[in-house]
Design a binder for these strands. Structure first.
Lengths: 338, 338
DNA sequence: CTGAAAGCGCTAACAC
DNA sequence: GTGTTAGCGCTTTCAG
């Protein structure tokens, strides 16, 4: 079907050897400028493009990086992917995307799939279900460069990029406290995830600072990060049915924030009068919402960019990397409901 | 760095030839079941995975498909990509994504980039700027399978998937008319795009049906589909400053719908009292908006799936395809503001 | 039933 | 300055 020209075609057409053509195209010094020009011109005229598979086979790298996220159709991830793509593109890399849908099994399969050498490195944000990361560890031990972003793991020593989840959670919770709320619940994702742990710590730190006791009934986990609406609904209902009903919820995730607002709307709970909210969200239309959600926004695009730069640094380094960077990028609090 | 086992490694370890190993792994009939088992077991034990680049080089196909969209971080496209990925994944294909950011130049480069043989086929949704598609035509003539989705072109004969833009626009406009609006403006994207043309036709057909004259001042184009907020703002302001101000706007795009609501909010224009809206949008949080936007939702996920299935049909067909499908999938109108 | 050898497109010693 | 050759990992004749 689609049979693009090869080096050989050029060589034959010009009565040269393939190696000469190869050298001319890659501008090696030991080649007459006359032949060089001849080759270049001809290559241009037939729109010659080297076969990337042959190159990959030869150079043992594919100039592509694998990206593992839970869902593409997610505010945070689609923005992060945009950042990843912006850097990768400039540096001549393709990105290959796979989704875990928050499933551990799917994550294993995807990683395996990507790893079987079609990618030079991996940009990974763990699935909500993932607790055991031996699949990644094994790969990493074999030499596959991996950079974590957003949902990171401490069990692998490599570059990591995360949002300042602690501070973001602290800020949001403190905002609720300062606005006058006392019984602040916390709705969060899977307890394994680094983001959940860090945000929980931020939440607790804020409560501590103001001498508000942490109430374990007030902390609700949604193991799939709100991917299933029932999960979120159950958690919210549980909170609403507590004897000492919370007067505010700090929500530790985008889908959870949205899901929670949907449920409260359905239940006709007035926000913030009956229940105040503050939550992580990367939606860019929060200003248009009826509920004035105070939100913590993660620097998704920048995080994608940073992670990609780090990965490329590993990929293009001549020497093995031993010092790993652990970058934390600030979140931003947007106050809306007070 | 990362040096996975090869056929040769297995062959040496087992004292066989690479060809025998190759045959054993692919379960060729003419091989003793004993050797077969020995090879299979060993391959399993070292977790052997064939090198995809070598395979691609040999088989002249990469089991990957290129996807060209304007932005990943866009409701419609991220949902469509999700659909694309769902099918591709099941069939063992990778997807390689590139963004045009609505730029013609970037589209040309990306297509070129993808085309240089690393992908077996292309799934394309044209950029807003694209008027001339010779870059795609050339490629297609050389045998690169291309399937268009959403923003299609009639200049290439191939499979196409689109939303029922005409009907969607008709429904939205008719809804505005039936609700009592008479001076209905139309805010749309680049006039080259198939989606703009079809939606304009639907808009005009609805006006015609109710004997409302089409007023050319009422039709405003945003050449970049609202990617630049100024563009949208200019268009909306122009409409608001008309002598005979429209009482409603039918908006033909997701970003435009969002952008328009943002501007109206800024200008403190009451919706729908001062100006009613209905527009295309694939946002899944419209129910939470303060403005009750009646929306036309495109079947993004299904469109991605359909386009991918069509492309795979071409890729995996033994014979050249001569009959092309032109599938139109129904949109859905969600009435909110009346 | 198995092995040797060629070839996919390219680069890099190594000749001359 | 240019050609020859080998090899990246794999499949596939062709021999035996």
């Amino acid at each position: 079907m689609f049979e693009p020209p090869t080096l050989k075609d050029i060589a034959i057409a010009l009565g040269l050897s393939t190696s000469t053509v190869s050298r001319a195209l890659r501008d090696t010094y030991e080649i007459s400028s006359k032949t060089k020009k001849r080759v270049l011109d001809y290559a241009q005229s037939i729109n010659y493009q080297p076969n990337p598979n042959a190159l990959s086979l030869k150079e043992r790298r594919s100039k592509s990086i694998g990206v593992v996220v839970s869902e593409v159709a997610n505010h945070y991830f689609s923005q992060a992917i945009s950042g990843i793509e912006s850097i990768a593109y400039d540096r001549g890399y393709h990105i290959i995307i796979s989704q875990t849908h928050e499933s551990y099994e799917r994550e294993k399969i995807n990683v395996q799939h990507l790893a079987s050498r079609s990618v030079d490195g991996l940009l990974v944000s763990l699935s909500a279900e993932t607790n055991d990361i031996s699949h990644l560890k094994e790969l990493h031990d074999k030499g596959m460069p991996i950079v974590f972003f957003d949902r990171v793991s401490n069990e692998i020593e490599t570059h990591k990029v995360r949002a300042d989840n602690f501070q973001g959670a602290f800020d949001a919770t403190e905002h609720l406290i300062k606005t006058g709320y006392k019984r602040i619940a916390h709705l969060t994702s899977s307890p394994h995830l680094s983001i959940s742990i860090e945000r929980l710590e931020g939440y607790m730190a804020a409560l501590n600072k103001y001498n508000i006791p942490v109430h374990s009934d007030y902390i609700k986990n949604c193991p799939h990060g709100g991917m299933f609406p029932e999960e979120t609904e159950r958690a919210v209902l549980d909170l609403l049915q507590l004897q000492e009903k919370p007067d505010a919820i700090f929500i530790a995730g985008d889908r959870l924030s949205i899901g929670c607002m949907e449920i409260l709307k359905k239940l006709n709970v007035k926000v913030p009068d009956e229940l105040a909210l503050a939550g992580f969200s990367n939606s860019d239309v929060l200003d248009l919402f009826e509920i004035r959600l105070s939100s913590v926004r993660q620097p998704a695009f920048e995080m994608g960019q940073a992670a990609t730069e780090m990965l490329l640094k590993i990929l293009e380094s001549k020497y093995p990397i031993t010092e790993f960077e652990n970058r934390t990028i600030a979140t931003k609090l947007f106050i809306r409901n007070s």
